[in-house]
Structures are given as C-alpha cells and as structure tokens.
Simulated scan of single mutants.
Amino acid sequence: MTETPLLLTREGAVARLTLNRPERRNAMNSAMGAAIDTALDELAADTTTRVVIISGAGGHFCAGLDLTQVGAVGNTEAERAAAAQARNHATGQRFIRLSSLPQIVIAAVQGAAHAGGLGWVCAADFAIATADARFCAPEVRRGLVPAQILPWLVRRMGRSAAMRMTLRADVIDAAEAGRLGLVHQVVADAAALDAAVTAIIADIRQGAPMALAETKALIAALGPLSPEGYAEAGAQAFAKCAAGPEAKEGIAAFKEKRAAHWVG
C-alpha cells in the first residue's frame, strides 16, 4: 500500500506533482486531498518555480474520487450528506487553487482520467495525453453528479461537448478528447509525452515570469468560472445524491461489475 499519496519533487524551476495511489489508479481520498492542499500552499508562495507538472503514478492519471469514501463517514443520512458536501466543496476549491497558481501548469495524462481526474486536466493550463489515455465523467452511472468538474469541462470544451460527456458518461479515447478540445495535444507514448512537456517548458522559459503570471490572471479575469454560488450548490447536489439510494446502488453495481437496477 502506498504510504505517500502525493509526491512533490523539484528539478530546478520545474515542480512535479505526482498523484501517488497507483493501486487505486490514483483515486482521491482524504489523505491525498490533505497532501494536495499542503503542496498548493507551498507552490502558491514559491517565487522560484516557473512550471508545475501534474501527473499520476503507475500508468494512470486519476480515477476521480475514491468511492470507498462515499457514505463512509457519519452514522446518519444527514451526517453522511454533510461529509459528502464538505468533501465535494473542498475538491472544487483544489481545482481553483491549481488553476490560480502563478506558475504554468501542465497536465501530463496517461491511462485513466475519470470523474474528478477531469478536473485536474481542465484546471491545468496545458493538457497533453498519450494515445492510450481514456477520459470519462461516469458520475450519473454511479448515482452521483459531476458537480465540481462541470464548470471546468464547460470552460475547456464548451457546453455542448461537456453535456455529451456528462450525460452519456461513456469512455472516450485520447483522439476524441483532442477533437473535443479536452486536451491540447495527443502523443504516441510516454517517451513522446516527456518530449512534449519538455517542449512546452522550453517555450515557457522564453517568457518573463511576471508577464506570464499576469497574463494568466488577465485570462481568468475575462469571466468567472461559474456563477456566484455554484460551487456550494454543486456540493449540495452532490451530497444529496451521495447520501441517497441511487448512489448506494450505483456504487454497489460498479464494485460488483454489474448493471445498476435502473439500466433496465
């Protein structure tokens, strides 16, 4: 079992955030969330790092929320809903904080980028994927809602493509993700991914650090990610579903590799 759910390493002016729960396809649990918060605090105050690369260990990017934590906290439905609401809201804030870093953020994607993993893809300034990467927003199939990733998908892909991903909830390949605008570039394999990331870093080094940071801030100022109050409303919607019977059935069906009862 992995003891360190997140690795933060540095190579000169480049910092690497590696989601490090390979045995769970880097699914996010509370320990990983806390480690990400600490790393984001450190990076936000870092004046020497110019590029942040976020990736996953073990050949996968991130499978989203660790579903073993849904409904696992609290003795009553109200307590479980409150825990789910707080967890979902905190996840959304992490996407915002990654996007708001003064450094240029690159998502280097291999394997699965599902559910909350899509939030990291879209919160990054650049997203590069290998040809074997797979993308999915499967929440509705689990009796849940894609509350905190939805604004990021809409911003990156547009409302129509985001609707297609979140309502159909099927798996798309890297080529389709590139066509829809979810990722900026698709490359053949891990070696080509490293080369593509290196090329972006070389380009970024040509820009002045303050000018790059101010440009990011100006782009963000062109419009809010979502309407005021959306994050809290999204967290409430997630909590309502997470504490309800559909999530219980959907997650059980996923674990048991069977169709949920509503499939027909």
Rank of each mutant, 00 (worst) to 15 (best):
residue 225 L to Y: 01
residue 162 A to D: 09
residue 237 A to H: 07
residue 133 A to V: 12
residue 35 A to W: 04
residue 84 A to D: 04
residue 116 G to R: 02
residue 173 D to K: 11
residue 113 A to C: 15
residue 126 F to Q: 10
residue 260 A to F: 08
residue 89 H to G: 00
residue 17 L to N: 06
residue 115 A to T: 04
residue 136 C to P: 07
residue 24 R to W: 12
residue 206 Q to N: 14
residue 255 K to N: 15
residue 203 D to Q: 15
residue 179 R to W: 11
residue 138 P to C: 02
residue 116 G to N: 13
residue 189 D to L: 06
residue 11 E to C: 05
residue 131 A to Y: 03
residue 38 T to E: 14
residue 254 F to Y: 14
residue 250 G to C: 08
residue 216 K to S: 02
residue 216 K to N: 02
residue 61 F to V: 11
residue 73 V to N: 01
residue 126 F to M: 09
residue 136 C to K: 13
residue 172 I to G: 03
residue 126 F to I: 09
residue 177 A to C: 11
residue 181 G to Y: 09
residue 236 Q to E: 15
residue 155 R to N: 07
residue 91 T to H: 00
residue 80 R to M: 12
residue 81 A to E: 10
residue 216 K to Q: 00
residue 121 V to N: 08
residue 100 S to M: 02
residue 211 A to E: 14
residue 160 S to M: 12
residue 74 G to Q: 06
residue 220 A to L: 02
residue 260 A to V: 05
residue 72 A to W: 06
residue 12 G to M: 09
residue 176 E to W: 10
residue 246 E to M: 14
residue 188 A to D: 15
residue 231 A to E: 12
residue 258 R to Q: 03
residue 72 A to S: 14
residue 176 E to Y: 07
residue 158 G to H: 12
residue 3 E to N: 10
residue 169 A to R: 10
residue 166 T to P: 09
residue 34 A to F: 03
residue 70 V to K: 01
residue 258 R to F: 05
residue 187 V to P: 13
residue 2 T to Y: 09
residue 76 T to P: 01
residue 194 D to K: 09
residue 3 E to Q: 13
residue 32 M to A: 04
residue 166 T to A: 08
residue 204 I to V: 15
residue 257 K to I: 11
residue 174 A to T: 14
residue 226 S to C: 06
residue 242 A to M: 04
residue 10 R to L: 06
residue 174 A to C: 14
residue 49 T to K: 08
residue 136 C to T: 11
residue 215 T to G: 05
residue 210 M to E: 14
residue 156 R to C: 08
residue 259 A to N: 12
residue 30 S to V: 10
residue 127 A to L: 09
residue 78 A to R: 10
residue 255 K to D: 10
residue 263 V to L: 05
residue 86 A to P: 08
residue 129 A to Q: 09
residue 122 C to M: 03
residue 193 L to A: 06
residue 239 A to W: 02
residue 126 F to K: 11
residue 150 L to N: 05
residue 233 A to S: 13
residue 163 M to V: 15
residue 9 T to W: 05
residue 76 T to A: 00
residue 65 L to N: 01
residue 85 Q to C: 08
residue 259 A to V: 05
residue 106 I to R: 01
residue 40 L to H: 01
residue 26 N to W: 04
residue 132 D to K: 07
residue 47 T to V: 07
residue 34 A to M: 09
residue 146 P to L: 02
residue 95 F to I: 00
residue 115 A to D: 13
residue 155 R to T: 02
residue 192 A to L: 04
residue 241 C to N: 14
residue 244 G to R: 06
residue 264 G to V: 09
residue 164 R to Y: 12
residue 81 A to P: 06
residue 161 A to R: 15
residue 138 P to F: 04
residue 243 A to L: 02
residue 128 I to G: 03
residue 19 L to V: 04
residue 125 D to N: 05
residue 116 G to S: 02
residue 73 V to H: 02
residue 61 F to A: 08
residue 20 N to L: 04
residue 73 V to S: 01
residue 193 L to R: 01
residue 197 V to D: 06
residue 83 A to T: 01
residue 173 D to P: 15
residue 179 R to G: 13
